[in-house]
Amino acid sequence: MKIIVCAKQVPDPEAPYTAVQVNSDTKEISTKGVAPVINPYDENALEAALRIKDENGAEVVVISVGSKISQAVLRRSLAVGADNLVVVDSPQFKSLDSSSIAYVLSKALEKMGEYDLILTGRQAGDWDLGQTGLILGEILGIPTVNLVRSVKIEDGKVVAEKILPGAYELVKSNLPALLTVSSEVGELRYPIAKRKIQAYKQPIDVWSAEDIGVDSDKLVQIDMSALMPPPDMGRDCQFIEGDSPEEKGKNLASILKGG
């Protein structure tokens, strides 16, 4: 059983908002002094994969496409239990749009050979587009399920809980299949110290655009006609005073009740 988890490196979505700098001129966003992370939704996907590995045994391979991918960041996936890491890195892959990333992923998958299950996060914390996984499914022509919160392998088939409003749908599919995973799966486990050390030493595959035969004419960058900081929603917070928490609680009740 080979599970591919597609993981994107993104600026930390949990960075302090003051560290996020929007440059409208260059249409760039930087998180000043904040390290990038693996897209948290992709971490959810990895967690889902690892649970299958725990349960059924599986080889989990994490693949990441981008430009200037930080191995230090991506190696965290090895530290938590992925078996291999493939980094597909090229300057041409800078801010690719979803369909292009899906295309590059499909080329990388070709090189990797057989697989049974592909898991991706529901969307990435940078552009929040939520398209890559689904398009990859289209390219590969395999069964695709969006927004699952649980994945299991039963009798050689994948069974997943697909999120619906106020409900879930239990679905089943043949393999290979692609599922996009939602955060409800739960957070990625913590690495154990010993694995961490191994993870920084483990050899990984680093491929270039040429290595996987990417046709650069097919690559399209994200482009915007404008990028702006969000509207300022800052409110002047009035802190409820009180000598004890209880008193503060009472005071709040009075204020809310009064107005």
Binding site: Q9, G33, V34, A35, P36, K68, S70, A72, R76
Partner: peptide
């Protein structure tokens, strides 16, 4: 250093500290 951090060019031990 900040540039390194933003670019994910990190030192494992410091990642743990962080």
């Amino acid at each position: 250093r900040a540039q390194c951090v933003e670019d994910g060019q990190l030192v494992p031990a410091l990642m743990d500290v962080m």
